[in-house]
Each structure stands twice: as structure tokens, then as C-alpha cells.
Design a binder for these strands. Structure first.
Lengths: 205, 205
DNA sequence: TAGATTGTTAATCGATTAACAATC
DNA sequence: TAGATTGTTAATCGATTAACAATC
């Protein structure tokens, strides 16, 4: 079963399963079932079993899943059993929050490079890392073989920054700018825009 | 066509259409087509037309859509033609970034209330608003009739904060804590967790 | 053995898309 | 009129779920 066979909607749920399982683990639980996990997440147990079945058999009839084992498997499937270096572009308020977010290190992501275009910020440090001139972005990213980046710049410059990142070899982008990015097929973009999420809420309120 | 008839997947795309149309507007364009919009967003033109058709007829054969008109309609559908007051719970790094984010005001969302549990922060100001004791959260939210909240507290306290918010009448929550929240049916939650998004990217990289 | 839960099948349900008449 | 694009229909495609044999 090659990656391209597995629906993206399935992939999108795996990190959510992983997060819930990790949480159960910190709560000291060792075994769970698709029923219990489904109830926690508001998802049917059948869907969880079906999703997991794309990748192998991880449970035991009558018992359920050993959480530690399933966590390890999901980490492997999502390729987060390793450490990922991430470049952060934009050292404004959002960049600042991202640079200080502990959740990254805990999950194998490490911001190792920060860029900005503000001369007042270039050369200063943010959470221990020196802020570099965005003009040297391509060169630096290539030199350190970075493949993941977070874009936290204004909408106006986000596409230009993205083009630079792609040219330098970045394969995955987490975009905080409120704009749709155009990228080649081999580059994967995820979007975080609180306004988009809030507008989806207000429809129902 | 009542709201509950319209698939949530359709609703989830409307804010993205709105964002792209607003952008076209700031670029000075007045007319667009489902083809053009679809190419910008990587979505088929048929899907855009189908999505919009749930709510009425907004285009003109042979011409396309008047952007200003379509923007107004989408704002009305999503209920963001009005101003929404939002409570922010948590004045850490993420709360700080949210409090300073200009994108909210530009789109009709106004953070009018900020809460934290840190005595060192309570009473100080963040972007002009006084940080209130989270112990008074329910009382304050009820008094000001707030229906939207952003949760930016650690995972450990997120569910307790949520329960308070719900009890006080909040109907929509944007959750930044890396945990699944349990809420009654009438409350709508959206999740923002950069780790979840990054893990979805690494699968493909 | 009795009870529980998996992995999988087949049926159901829902979303996307191709195609086109209508019409600007 | 010729060209373009909408809104909608029907077909296709894909995802979810109910059910159950297998089995711990």
C-alpha cells in the first residue's frame, strides 16, 4: 500500500489520533479501544479501525490497542519518529509565539532558523536563535538542508517568500499568512488562519 | 434551505472563497469567474458553483460574479457582516500574538475581554485591554453577552476553561490547546494545532 | 466458555465532476 | 450572432458505517 493510495482525509485524522493517544498515555492508561478513542474524539469506532487498517494490524481482538505500540506506529507512519528542523520566516507577533511554543520540541519539530526583513530585528536573538536577514533565506536553507518552513509574514510578501523557500528545496510549508499560496505539486502546504476558523463557527452560532 | 441541510464541508470552504475574493478586491479587480477563482484556490470551478448554489444565484451567465456583491453575500451567509465580540482566555505567548493580530479587527472580530490565572498578569494591560482573573470568567462573559471565545491555555486546563465558557453561554470556541474538547451539541469548536498540521505535512515529505 | 473487540466486507450514504441548456 | 459562463442535472467517484466472522 503506497502513500498515494491512502486518502488524504485518512492522513488528516492520524495526527489527531496520535495526539489523543499521547494524552491517554500521559494519563497513565496503557490499553484503549477504537470505541473509547472514538468517543473521546467524536468519531465512530468503525472509522478509526478502517483508517488504521490502511497501514497494518495494530490491535488485538477482545482487548483493543496497546497505546504505546500504536503511538510508535503512528509516529512511524507520519514520519515523526525522527527530528525535523524547521525554518521560521517572520519574527512578528505570530513568529514570536511560534518560536516560544514548547509543543514543537515535544513532538520532534525544532525551529533552527529564523528570518525577518526588519533591520532592527536582524542580528538579535529570539528564543536563543539569531534572526537572519530574509535576503539570505535561500542560501541558508540550502546550506542546512531544511525541508520544512513556517511562514508568518504579511499576506503581501507570503508568495514571494514561498517561492524562495521552494527554490531552496523546502517541501512542506505551514502558512500563517491569510492568503492562498501557489506551489509546485511536490510541495505540501497547510493553512492556519484564525479568521477562517472563526467564520466557520459564526455560521452555526 | 435551512443551515442543517448544507454540508459542513461546503461551509468550511466559504471562508476560503471569501478570503480570496477580498484579496482580488484589494488588487482592484471587480469581476471574477468560478474558473478564475478555482484556479487560484486549486478547486474545480464546478465545485465553487455548486457550493454557492446552495445559497442562491449570485452570478451572471457569460460574465461571472461581481466580486463586491459576492463578498457581501458570503459575509451575510457566514454572519460576519456584523461585529463579533470575542473573549480570549490565556495571555501567554499565543494569547499575546492573538491579542495583537490585526486580521481580527479587519474581519469583524474584536477581542474585548482577556483572562489569565497568573497573578503577575492580572490587572495589567494587553493591547489596551485589562487582563482579568480567570476566576471571574463566567460572570464577566455572561454580563457582556459574549458568545465567542478563543482558548489559549495549556492542555491541562483547557477542558475546565471550556466548561466554564459553555456554562456562561459561549456558543463557539477556537481552541489552541492541543487537546480534544468535549462540548454540548449546540457549541461549535474549531481546532488550531500547528503540530497536527506539521504532522500531516511530514507524511508526504 | 462467555464477553469483548478487532479487521474487513458489502451496503449505504454523500461529495465531486462532467456535461449542457439557459442566457448574458 | 458568437463566445463565455452560469446554475443544475445525472453520473461517477469516494467515504462512512453496519454487520459479522475471527479470535483473544
Amino acid at each position: 500500500m503506497t502513500p498515494e493510495d491512502i486518502p488524504d482525509i485518512v492522513i488528516s485524522r492520524l495526527p489527531v489520533y496520535l495526539r489523543a493517544l499521547s494524552r491517554l498515555q500521559t494519563e497513565g492508561q496503557e490499553i484503549t479501544s477504537s470505541k473509547e478513542l472514538g468517543e473521546r474524539l467524536g468519531i465512530s469506532s468503525a472509522q478509526i479501525r478502517k483508517d488504521l487498517s490502511h497501514f497494518g494490524e495494530f490491535g488485538k481482538q477482545g482487548t483493543g490497542y496497546e497505546i504505546k505500540k500504536l503511538v510508535d506506529q503512528l509516529r512511524r507512519i507520519l514520519k515523526v519518529e525522527r527530528e525535523w528542523d524547521v525554518a521560521l520566516v517572520g519574527a512578528g507577533a505570530i513568529g514570536h509565539a511560534l518560536a516560544h511554543y514548547n509543543g514543537f520540541a515535544d513532538n520532534g519539530f525544532r525551529i533552527t532558523m529564523i528570518f525577518d526583513n526588519d533591520p532592527a530585528k536582524i542580528g538579535t536573538r529570539l528564543n536563543g536563535f539569531e534572526i537572519c536577514d530574509v535576503a539570505r533565506l535561500g542560501e541558508q536553507i540550502q546550506e542546512h538542508n531544511i525541508t520544512l518552513a513556517m511562514v508568518a509574514v504579511p499576506a503581501e510578501t507570503a508568495q514571494a517568500v514561498t517561492d524562495e523557500l521552494v527554490k531552496a528545496g523546502v517541501r512542506g510549508i505551514l502558512n500563517y499568512a491569510p492568503i492562498n499560496l501557489t506551489v509546485p505539486e511536490h510541495v505540501h502546504v497547510q493553512y492556519i488562519d484564525p479568521v477562517v476558523h472563526l467564520q466557520r463557527i459564526t455560521y452555526y452560532v
